[in-house]
């Protein structure tokens, strides 16, 4: 018995300083983590499962992530099957009822936004890696994020009613600045001639971003989602780029760059490599990240 007490005493050193019971929230993706952090403020302690360099479809399910989920009071996920390849076993092994799907501490942020690319016919895998619930890459879009920010504010308020007014205030402030920002950026694009608003993407990662900014995607380098490009398809993409005048290729950091760069060189265009998420380790904020995303695309379109 005494040995157990001594052991527990030793463990208490491992607990964070100033043992104010903060709400421990895990977020699957860095951008969701940034939302929780900015809305939650000091009342919340955030842990993020994926790093901003990692492809959110293929996050490495390392067992240390089980520890994070075991100790979390809440879990915020992207949803729309983006995490289906790695999250379910981690949740099951976490031995934590609070973060299981459907529990009060579980928030699927995709339930907060209007979804795009929702299949209208039954999904067939020959179409590639189609997400049956709709396109899951809404975190690049400031308008979707506005809704997510408000939703996270309400979610945290339900879990920690005492902090609800504070979460509400912070969420409103952040959503307000997102709204101003998204209008300003959309206006910058609207000033461009129509033929300058055409882009090519590597993966179908940006329909929400393009809808926000008023851009038109004329082709994707992947012939179908998740299927690597073949020469025939790339030749067609090149022909489309020449015919439509699209000169800007947009992709994420974890996608291969050789094909994009070659295509860009052939049409005298540019490749814009967007960071996959907010880099919290470098102290980046949600708006910093969106500035980089929208600014990168707009800068490339203007030149």
């Amino acid at each position: 018995m005494r040995a157990t007490l001594v052991f527990l005493g030793m463990l208490s050193f491992l607990a964070p300083e100033g043992a104010v019971a903060r709400l421990r929230v895990a977020a699957t993706l860095p951008t969701l983590g940034a939302v929780v952090k900015e809305v939650g403020g000091d009342r919340v302690e955030v842990s993020v499962l994926a790093s901003p360099e990692e492809d959110p479809h293929y996050v490495d399910p390392r067992p240390n992530l089980i520890l994070v989920l075991n100790r979390a009071d809440a879990l915020v996920v992207n949803g729309l099957d983006l995490e289906v390849g790695w999250l379910p076993p981690l949740q099951a092994q976490a031995r934590n009822g609070r973060i299981q799907t459907g529990a009060p501490g579980y928030l699927d942020a995709s339930t907060l936004i209007p979804r795009l690319d929702v299949p209208t016919t039954p999904v067939d895998r020959a179409q590639g890696d189609i997400h049956p619930g709709g396109n899951p890459h809404y975190l690049f879009d400031a308008r979707s994020l506005e809704r997510v920010v408000r939703g996270v504010g309400e979610f945290l308020g339900r879990l920690d009613p005492e902090g609800a007014p504070e979460y509400g205030r912070r969420a409103e402030t952040l959503a307000g600045s997102l709204e101003a920002f998204q209008r300003e950026q959309a206006a910058r694009i609207a000033a461009l001639p129509v033929e300058k608003r055409r882009v090519v993407s590597y993966h179908r990662s940006f329909p929400y971003l393009y809808q926000w900014l008023g851009l038109e995607e004329v082709a994707t380098i992947e012939p179908r989602p998740g299927i690597p490009p073949d020469p025939g398809h790339v030749a067609r993409v090149l022909a489309t780029m020449k015919a439509t005048g699209a000169r800007v290729i947009v992709q994420e950091t974890w996608q291969p760059r050789n094909t994009s760069q070659t295509l860009a060189r052939l049409v005298g265009g540019t490749v814009v490599v967007l960071p996959g998420g907010v880099d919290l380790s470098r102290g980046e904020s949600l708006l910093d990240h969106l500035r980089q995303v929208a600014g990168g695309v707009i800068h490339a379109l203007q030149h």
């Binding site: 019971a21 903060r22 709400l23 421990r24 009342r43 009071d73 809440a74 009822g97 609070r98 529990a103 009060p104 501490g105 879990l159 920690d160 009613p161 005492e162 902090g163």
Partner: peptide, 12 residues
Amino acid sequence: RGALAQEVPGSP
């Protein structure tokens, strides 16, 4: 107990 132990430590 699992069913009752769902409350969040952050809240009183």
